[in-house]
């Protein structure tokens, strides 16, 4: 069975590295280094190349989990990492000042990829900041004419991340 490749993207701190570590069946490959810009107020390290983990479904299907760096300056890695990918998981950090702009930025930059494949959206840290709400996100997406499944998730919670993954798989199967 061919391995499926899914890509996690989203702003720095949204939980991409955490989500992959949460569900990967082996300790994920990480390329986190110390952050030296104002991101360091939020967290000490940042991913500069990629995260890589793997999960095997009950039916034996293996899914490769690739995380991108969040920052725009690493866009060249985004372009490398999507190659051969089958779907995108966008994680959005609800604490950030303008989460809609974040979401728009990633949807725009991965637009070609998600047109060919599919995407799901996970909003993280809603436990810390509860606005905008999930409804607000859905309205925002509707306005943009982009209907993607979106959920509030905690990247540290295995069931939450698996739920996103399963939704993406279902989308792919039915499309």
């Amino acid at each position: 069975m061919k391995q499926i490749k899914f890509i996690f993207t989203g702003p720095p701190g949204a939980g991409k590295t955490t989500a992959i570590a949460t569900i990967s069946e082996f300790p994920p490959v990480s390329t986190d280094v110390f952050s030296t810009d104002s991101l360091s107020k939020l967290k000490d390290t940042t991913t500069v190349a990629m995260d890589f983990g793997q999960i095997t479904l009950e039916n034996g299907q293996k899914i490769g989990l690739y995380g991108t760096p969040g920052q725009r300056r690493f866009k060249f890695m985004w372009d490398i990492l999507i190659q051969g990918g089958l779907g995108l998981i966008v994680l959005i950090d609800n604490r950030r000042p303008e989460p809609f702009k974040d979401l728009a930025m990633y949807l725009d930059n991965f637009s070609e990829f998600i047109e060919k494949t599919d995407a799901v959206i996970g909003i993280t840290c809603i436990d810390i900041k509860d606005t905008p709400t999930l409804d607000d996100y859905q309205d925002f997406l509707k306005e943009r004419g982009q209907i993607y499944p979106s959920f509030a998730i905690d990247a540290r919670n295995k069931d939450d991340v698996l739920f996103l993954l399963n939704t993406l798989l279902t989308c792919l199967e039915t499309s």
Binding site: T31, V33, F34, T36, D37, V48, A49, P69
Partner: peptide, 30 residues
Amino acid sequence: TVDGHELLYLVKRDIPVHKISTMNSSLLAL
């Protein structure tokens, strides 16, 4: 910096310093 910001450099040719810094931070981490 290891997360891809140029700090100080000397170049004799027209090379994209910012791009090189960022890409090499990825490469070194990999």
